[in-house]
């Protein structure tokens, strides 16, 4: 790839960058960009990638115990998709000048953040449904606008991810639907699961925008398209009719249609809990990172072997 554009005149670069944003054009890897833009993107894209990778764990937990072969296959495919999404995103981040090894290191040493939703555990099968319906549903709301993010590689990775994500939400919904049509024990399992996942899913959109320092700048840079509160409202509006179809009660007594606003009102969220989990004191924070680190360290000898083999072959070729 071409070298960075440090030689470019700062003012000309900044002017061109502003023009790109104003015209809703894409910024590509070889374009001049403010250092803050580059850093923000690296942080956001890598966090997103880490979330996909860590997200493989709570669901991977149920692959060996899936209660039907069809569900087993679907779950394997979903978790595999998540690995793929992580890979697309790490690739996009790399175009900004950071190595995958560096990002991985940040993750396994606990320096990097990832979506705190994955710090919750999956004690029941119904959680596979809730994760698909609520967590992936919230992720889709967040992600669709990102398909128009100003940075080209990120936007394009998001298009690919969004296409695959809709299968994820649908399969989660269907797991819950099947449970709600089943035995009393299955219905109880579904309701209990939704009771646990509902609020954390709503908090995936982040704190109210007044409390979110990065939002304004991200919106100015055409990375973030809608406010946290807007996205959260949109999500709740979608959820309520879906919950009715499922026959599941959302664990929020304050949900009510507000004719004046044209939206559903919903109750206050416990942001203290959110910050606890974000700060590393959630139910599974320690385990998630530790297991990722173990997998990575256990695999070092394999990666080294492959590298050594490749080096030896290329030495042979050069010598011949």
């Amino acid at each position: 790839m071409a070298e960075s554009t440090e030689t470019m005149d700062y003012e000309a670069g900044a002017a061109r960058f502003a023009e790109l944003l104003a015209n809703e054009h894409r910024v590509e890897p070889t374009d001049w960009m403010p250092e803050g833009y580059r850093k923000t993107l690296i942080r956001q894209i890598s966090q997103h990638a880490h979330s996909e990778i860590i997200g493989m764990q709570p669901e991977g937990n149920w692959i060996t115990r899936a209660p039907s072969l069809k569900r087993k296959a679907i779950l394997m495919a979903k978790v595999q998709d998540e690995a793929g999404h992580g890979l697309y995103l790490y690739s996009a981040a790399q175009t900004l000048g950071i190595e995958r090894e560096t990002m991985f290191d940040q993750l396994i040493t606990g320096k990097a953040k990832y979506s705190s939703i994955f710090n919750y555990t999956t004690p029941t099968w119904a959680d596979m449904g809730s994760i698909g319906w609520l967590v992936d549903g919230a992720a889709i709301c967040n992600q669709v606008p990102l398909c128009r993010a100003s940075y080209g590689p990120y936007g394009r990775a998001m298009v690919r991810i969004c296409k695959e994500e809709s299968f994820h939400q649908r399969q989660g919904f269907e797991i819950l639907l099947q449970l709600m049509r089943g035995t009393d024990a299955q219905r109880a399992m579904a309701q209990e699961s939704v009771n646990r996942w509902y609020a954390p899913a709503l908090m995936m959109f982040g704190p109210p925008d007044d409390d979110s320092p990065n939002s304004k700048q991200s919106m100015a840079w055409n990375i973030k398209r809608f406010s946290n509160d807007d996205l959260r409202q949109r999500f709740v509006d979608m959820l309520v009719p879906q919950a009715e179809i499922l026959g599941i009660t959302l664990p929020d007594p304050d949900i009510a249609w507000n004719e004046g606003r044209g939206h559903y009102d919903f109750g206050e969220l416990d942001w203290a809990e959110f910050h606890e989990v974000l700060a590393g004191r959630g139910p599974a924070n320690a385990i998630r990172v530790a297991r990722r680190r173990t997998a990575h360290e256990d695999g070092a000898w394999v990666r080294e072997a492959a590298r050594a083999y490749a080096d030896a072959r290329s030495d042979e070729r050069m010598a011949s």
Partner: peptide
Amino acid sequence: LGEWIAHAPELEEDVALGNIAL
């Protein structure tokens, strides 16, 4: 093979072993 998913030596192998398992 399903037991390997999320534990493979590299992400690309999680995908490859996942494919074989499927």
